[in-house]
């Protein structure tokens, strides 16, 4: 009986979620089971060839041959996204902890600084990294001016550059949720731990970290999800040399004109993120209870 008024109040949210999230996903799901049109777009009849294509290539005689080329791209993407998430945690947790330890007025300033990059378009910020990293970029110019190097260091067009771009872009998504949970940790708990003979490391390990875990779980998902689907950083900083899922999907909708395959890959990424979400949630609830 109490559900009805609740539903009424929730309806704007439900409509927004439906229009902006459910419908695009359902379209992607539907497209992934369609046939590719030669000029882009999709046509009938429905097929599962897009999914078959992930694991098999079609030989000239029509027989299917198992191939790992796409699996390799998926693996590389998951690996890079996971590595970027881990690095973002390693950088983001200390940053969040540092901000929490500041007096309130400074906290606000530092939080604004953390969110400041959102004010500038990601594309432009990624271009800025090119200006910094390329052979004639800031770093190489500076180092050769110092006389430390004679040849420019190959800072661009490798996995390191992609990682840097991913961590840089998505770091605020790690810092903010961790900050939110750390801020609510009662400082007296930390005092109590010190009072009970804990060292700084053990206070962090035994009190702060367990209490920050919900925020860490949220941060992991919030960084992993966009990092897995990112294509700007791999394309621009990685030079598109090593294909990743995001670039691969983007290609299917542009140059390759294979919308069903692009949709199928997108569905795969969504599934991976959902699985990561469930894993993060399960881990949060199990030992914290």
């Amino acid at each position: 009986m109490r559900i009805k008024p609740a539903l009424g109040l929730l309806s704007p949210a439900i409509i927004v979620i439906f229009i902006f999230m459910a419908i695009p996903m359902l379209i992607a799901l539907a497209y992934s089971f369609a046939t590719a049109d030669a000029y882009g777009g999709v046509t009938m009849p429905p097929s599962i060839s897009a999914y078959v294509q992930m694991l098999f290539t079609q030989d000239f005689d029509g027989s299917l041959i198992f191939t790992t080329s796409y699996l390799l791209i998926i693996w590389r993407s998951v690996y890079l996204a996971a590595l970027a998430t881990g690095l973002a945690l390693a950088v983001g947790f200390p940053v969040a902890w540092y901000i929490v330890c500041q007096p309130p007025s400074r906290r606000r300033l530092l939080l604004t600084l953390v969110t400041l990059p959102f004010w500038i378009n990601t594309l432009i910020r990624t271009y800025c990294w090119i200006l910094i990293l390329r052979d004639e970029g800031l770093i190489n110019k500076f180092l050769s001016w110092l006389g430390a190097i004679s040849q420019p260091l190959p800072l661009m067009y490798n996995q390191g550059a992609i990682l840097l771009g991913l961590v840089y872009t998505f770091l605020p998504f790690m810092v903010l949720p961790i900050y939110a949970t750390l801020e609510r940790v009662d400082p007296r708990l930390i005092e109590a731990a010190f009072d009970l003979y804990a060292s700084r490391y053990r206070v962090l390990r035994r009190v702060v970290w367990p209490l920050a875990r919900p925020g860490v779980a949220a941060g992991l998902v919030l960084v992993f999800a966009p990092a897995l689907g990112a294509f700007l950083q791999p394309d621009m900083l990685g030079g598109g040399k090593q294909l990743l899922l995001g670039s691969l999907i983007e290609m299917q909708f542009t140059s390759s004109r294979n919308w069903p395959f692009g949709s199928a890959l997108a569905v795969l990424v969504t599934l991976a993120v959902v699985i990561a979400l469930i894993a993060a949630r399960g881990r949060k609830e199990a030992p914290a209870r």
Partner: peptide
């Protein structure tokens, strides 16, 4: 520092570790 003194404190709102059980709280020190 606090950890170098054989002095322990009962805090005003107890400051019990919420993620630990009663026994784990007592065992902490």
């Amino acid at each position: 520092p606090p950890r170098a003194r054989r002095v322990n404190m009962v805090f005003q709102n107890y400051a019990l570790f919420p993620h630990l059980t009663v026994a784990q709280n007592i065992a902490f020190g």
